[in-house]
Structure formats: structure tokens, C-alpha cells
Nucleic acid binder design. Structure first.
Length: 167
DNA sequence: CGCCTTTGACCCGCGC
DNA sequence: GCGCGGGTCAAAGGCG
């Protein structure tokens, strides 16, 4: 199978390295209607995986449990992969129960950056894509200046939600 | 030629 | 203990 999701906008003259793969988001994902896009992209929520076990007699209940907050975003898009300006490498894909669409697992390729994200499309609404981020980037965005404009506008969405949260 | 996707296997936690 | 569901690994192939 090839890429079902074509990138709608040509990468101009920029020989964007592998941006081709990540271009989609910069495409007409959120661009179509300016502010309207903001309405389309809604913050689903954040989960702290620190579910305290109600174990009564558990002994060493240290915080060995690595709580990794996750941030989910719901976006109306025809493309699965939303490009936030970082470089991601897909490391897995699994079919999810109750969903006819597979979920993709991506990891930030930046050295030392272990940010992960997963992308899932809803069966109910084929046009809705849920992107779940895990962790925070500790490095600048590596992206061509070409699309920076688009990225910035997208950043408006992520910023408010990412900022107040600490790992 | 390097980086990335694909894909099945493997792993792990959990519920029965 | 076993099966299931979800998450990750790693080999092999693809594309720019």
C-alpha cells in the first residue's frame, strides 16, 4: 500500500528532506478556515497515568510507576499524520478494538528526545483524527522555514495545553 | 545511501 | 494459566 494520504500542498521549491512524509499537517489540515481551524482542533484532554492502586496491603508502593502524562488532540483532517514541525519515525501500528482504523505509533527522531505520539482515526467519524502526545520536546523544532508560518498558527493550538504541564 | 515505513513477532499487564 | 488488548522491537524493503 502506498500513501493513502497525499500531501495536498507541494513543498514549494524547498527540498524538504523527508518532510514529504510529515508534510500533511502543514497541508490543509488546519489551514482551510483560519480561526475555524481552531474550532475544529479541540483539546481532548490529558491523562495522568498515575492511577494509584487501591492496593491496601501493598508494601513498597514507591512511585516506581512512571507516570507519563498524555495529551490528546482531536482534529478534523483528511490526513492521519499531523505535522507539528518535529520529525517522527513510525515504530509501530496496531489495530484497535472497536476501531476499524489502525493506530500509528511515532517517536521523535531527535537524539535524546523520547517524545512519542500516537495517531488514531475514529471509526465513527472517519474525518476525525485523534493525536495523542506523550512527553515534551526538549529541543528546537527542526523544520524548513518554508512552512514555518503554518507551524506557528498550529502552535497556537498546542501551546496553551502544553505549557502548564510539567513532566 | 541514509532515513523512514512496513509488518509480524514479542512482551506485558490484566481479567477471567 | 491462558487469552486478549495494547505497546514496542527489529528485519527488510522503499523512496527521495
Amino acid at each position: 500500500m502506498e500513501n493513502h494520504y497525499q500531501k495536498f500542498f507541494p513543498t514549494s521549491s524547498s527540498p524538504a528532506p523527508s518532510a514529504a512524509t510529515y508534510g500533511p499537517f502543514t497541508a490543509n489540515t488546519l489551514v482551510p478556515s483560519n480561526r475555524q481551524a481552531l474550532n475544529n482542533g479541540k483539546f481532548v484532554g490529558s491523562e495522568s497515568d498515575d492511577q494509584l492502586k487501591p492496593s491496601a496491603g501493598d508494601d513498597k508502593n514507591k512511585d516506581k510507576k512512571i507516570r507519563k502524562p498524555r495529551y490528546a488532540f482531536q482534529t478534523r483532517s483528511r490526513v492521519d499524520i499531523l505535522d507539528d514541525g518535529y520529525r517522527w519515525r513510525k515504530y509501530g501500528q496496531k489495530a484497535v478494538k472497536n476501531n476499524k482504523f489502525p493506530r500509528g505509533y511515532y517517536r521523535c527522531t531527535h537524539t535524546g528526545c523520547s517524545v512519542k505520539k500516537q495517531v488514531q482515526r475514529l471509526t465513527k467519524d472517519e474525518s476525525v483524527v485523534v493525536t495523542t502526545y506523550e512527553g515534551m520536546h526538549n529541543h528546537p523544532i527542526d523544520k524548513a522555514a518554508d512552512n514555518f508560518e503554518h507551524i506557528l498558527s498550529q502552535m497556537h493550538i498546542y501551546r496553551p495545553f502544553f505549557k502548564p504541564i510539567h513532566l
